[in-house]
Amino acid sequence: MNSLKIENLQASIEDKAILHGLSLEIPKGEVHAIMGPNGSGKSTLAKVLSGHPSYKVDGGSATLDEENILGLEPDEISRLGLFLAFQYPMEVPGVTIANFIRAARNARLPEGEKVKAVDFYKELYEHMDDLGMDRKFTARSLNDGFSGGEKKRCEILQMSMLSPKYCILDETDSGLDIDALRVVSEGVNRMRNPDRGILVITHYQRLLEYIVPDYVHVMSEGKIVRTGGKELALELEERGYDWIKQEAVA
């Protein structure tokens, strides 16, 4: 089946177990949201699925369209079609946005082939216009000295240009004012289609007013403890996370 499928995933960092048997399936065409209190393991899940070298997988499985991704290099997972929009995008001085995205696109082509510059820039400018980014940004160093909002727009720009099969957005709303939140959300909504699965990780319900999910999962202590429709997010906003934790224990 075409989905990002996670079964009984267990993972740790520096011998500290964070994920305790997490299961979740995101079929293509759906948008899922994971909410949960700080320290519940939301960002860890994003990093483990992306192959971050600091985390160790202790058990379970994760597949992308039935292909295993655990234990692969981060770039291999990326080229299989998983994109992670970072909570804190890294700054890379001296490497321009345009050159970086072009290198990433070239990495997806057979050895020796390269994207055509004219076509590439046309596409890049279209996406930048959609995201309200000044075209001069192409020549700026990747995330170097960007504001929080600029960084997040740049993440969505990369996501649009790489057209991944599955996207994970890790706390994309953090550090955004309301205008930036709207632009970024619109960018994500434009990418919703039947051939793409999207996982939105967020602490607040606010983002989900803009990116309306098909399902909401609640994560606590390294597991999914409850799943519901978009109304679950509102309930969490009203009642907080404690009642779910208590139910989970009971």
Partner: peptide, 8 residues
């Protein structure tokens, strides 16, 4: 890691 996540 960030750059690798983009496929490099």
């Amino acid at each position: 890691f960030y750059m690798q996540q983009r496929g490099l």
